[in-house]
Simulated assay, not measured.
Amino acid sequence: MLRIFHNTTFDFIRWWRWAAGLTAAFIAIGLASFAVNPGLNRSIEFTGGTLMQLQFAQPPRAADVRGALESAGVTGAEIQQFGSSREYTVRVQDQRQVALQAAGAEGVARTIRAALERRFAPGSFTVVRTEAVGPRVGEELTRGAIIAILVSSLITLIYLAFRFEWRFGLAAVLSSAHDVLVTLAFIKLMHLEISLTVVAGILTLLGYSLNDTIIIFDRVREDLRKGRSEPLQATLNRAINETLPRSVLTHVTTFLATLALLIFAGEVIRPFAWVMSFGIFVATFSSIYVAGPLLLWIEHKWPRGNSASNRAARPPQSREPRARQGSAAANALPTTR
């Protein structure tokens, strides 16, 4: 049987400052990008609007498509090539056009189709898919996505507080919050469209990251129960090294699956594949270099008195000096004959 990274003794926690600087710099770059291009690239599922994917018989010019729409009164449309040179997406998210969705979700789509048929003749293109979302639905989906992320974090914190204790749960949830921030910075820098599929990818990333962190924390708890007289940092390093073979095999196989989606699944699912591929790396990074140092900081900030972890963190007290003192005192006593 092939054994990878067996019986390793890497000092992972030693490099936590470098890791913290790296992740802070990446998040800062992502936040700085908002100054250049404010806002996230939200899909019509959150902003409301109309999306049409078109496949033409002959490759058209984007300017011709835009001109046809503007002649029909559809202004502010975003026209992008989608895959091949014959496929385009038309996204209408102008506030005036979005307001029309409240009167009829398919009204704008019919207007776009009629305008293109006048310009390119009927039968010269095929409507592959149409998505039309009203403004009220977009607001509800936005609110629901935020609530889903917050509720999942709260439930995780409660579960870990009962499963381990609140210090472990707090470290795991803060580590997951780091994963979300880094992933949002990645989405911003890559200009990925945030759709319900991407939100599902973020929630999947949260579960994946927490699973890896829980496995390491569970090993930490087992090692603490063994009563080893060692600092908590050494216990964390041992737990990470003991779970390293399992982590490497799991992450590599999962990454290969998401890589296949990224390459072969097509444009619709590609943002989800990007988020998952990047998320696997972030989850691995945070479970080692974020969750562990956070647990150390929490233990230092709120010590647990005579708990197992603090006993392990204290240096052992040898009984040999007491024995020597006792024997010396016995020799000092006068002897009677």
Rank of each mutant, 00 (worst) to 15 (best):
P38L: 13
S33K: 12
R86D: 07
D94R: 05
A25L: 15
Q58H: 13
L69K: 03
V74H: 04
A77T: 04
T111Q: 13
I27E: 12
A105R: 10
F82I: 04
V98H: 05
R66I: 01
G21Q: 09
D94T: 07
A62H: 04
A35P: 08
F46H: 10
S124H: 11
A103D: 09
A24D: 08
R110W: 04
A32G: 14
M52W: 05
I27G: 12
R42E: 15
F46T: 10
G39W: 02
Q93N: 12
N37M: 12
F26A: 13
A115C: 03
L40R: 12
I29V: 15
I44A: 09
G49Y: 05
G21W: 14
G123M: 10
V36H: 14
F82V: 00
P60R: 08
A68S: 06
R61G: 13
A57S: 15
M52F: 07
A32H: 12
F120D: 07
I44R: 05
I112Q: 04
A102N: 08
S43V: 01
F56D: 03
L54F: 11
R113V: 10
E117L: 00
Q81E: 09
T89K: 07
A28W: 12
R113K: 11
A105V: 07
F56V: 02
Q55I: 06
V65S: 02
G123L: 13
E106D: 12
T47C: 10
S43E: 01
S84D: 11
S71R: 12
Y88V: 04
Y88D: 03
G73F: 02
G73H: 02
S85Y: 08
V108S: 01
G48T: 07
F120E: 02
F120Y: 04
G123V: 09
R91D: 06
S85K: 13
N37A: 13
A77K: 02
L31K: 15
E117K: 00
I27A: 15
Q55F: 02
L22S: 13
R86V: 06
V65T: 05
E106L: 07
E106A: 09
G48V: 02
L22E: 07
R61K: 14
R110G: 12
I29D: 09
L69W: 00
A121F: 09
F56H: 10
E117S: 03
G48P: 01
V98N: 05
A68E: 02
S71Q: 10
V74M: 04
D64A: 11
D94S: 11
Y88R: 08
T23M: 14
R86E: 10
E106C: 00
